[in-house]
């Protein structure tokens, strides 16, 4: 564990909590892509099956459980509790265009052809593209509430911090997880456009992000 990894996990937790509290307190999921949240729940489900097979540390187990509970709770809020405010018309990204290639790639590129490894690889590739429906929805509606942009900022920052963590671990312990690194680079690149808009529009400007 290093500072980049810890900061990344905290950033990830902050993002998930920001989103959950925003929906819970405003009693509305307007502007939020339910599809992305379902994909994130799927990422955690397929990645954290090792909760039942290996014990790494109390921190590892607790964080995995927190991420699982909060992601499913967020999906519940969107599709059940506050489904009246769910904007299904603008949440129109075809997730099958993500699931099919990611599933195929997980079978082709993995560290071991075992169910747990293939599911882990699937979760790594899926996480790289899971934010697509949300970013697509923002381009479609042309705007995003400032809280939603803060959610996206911390979510994008978390994997960027993981990249720093992997650089650190490579130089200090020779650790290199090729699948996670390549996928993490792709995932972070997807946020670059958003990061630019976030800094120029939200932090300096009106506090609301409206796209050109």
């Amino acid at each position: 564990m290093n500072i980049f990894r810890l900061a990344g996990d905290v950033s990830h937790l902050v993002a998930i909590i920001i989103l959950f509290l925003k929906i819970w307190k405003s009693k509305s999921c307007a502007g939020i892509s339910g599809k992305s949240q379902v994909l994130f729940a799927l990422v955690f489900t397929s990645r954290y099956l090792d909760l039942f097979t290996v014990f790494i540390s109390a921190y590892n187990t607790i964080m995995k459980l927190v991420f699982l509970v909060l992601s499913y709770a967020t999906v519940y809020l969107i599709y059940m509790r506050f489904r009246g405010s769910y904007d299904s018309e603008n949440d129109s990204f075809r997730v099958e265009f993500l699931l099919v290639p990611v599933t195929g790639l997980a079978f082709l590129e993995n560290y071991a052809f075992t169910p747990l490894e293939i599911l882990w690889t699937f979760s790594i590739f899926l996480e790289a593209v899971a934010i697509m429906p949300q970013l697509f929805m923002i381009t479609k509606t042309g705007e995003a509430e400032s809280i939603t942009t803060h959610y996206l900022f911390f979510l994008g920052l978390y994997r960027a911090l993981y990249l720093a963590n992997w650089v650190w671990r490579y130089h200090t312990e020779g650790f290199f997880d090729q699948i996670a690194v390549v996928s993490g680079v792709v995932q972070t690149i997807f946020y670059c456009d958003f990061f630019y808009l976030y800094v120029t529009r939200v932090l300096r400007g009106s506090g609301k992000m409206s796209l050109p």
Binding site: H12, D50, I56, M63, W120, Y162, F175
Partner: peptide
């Protein structure tokens, strides 16, 4: 390439 218990990241 980390396998099984070597995967200590979230």
């Amino acid at each position: 390439c980390p396998l099984g218990a070597e995967k200590d990241e979230l």
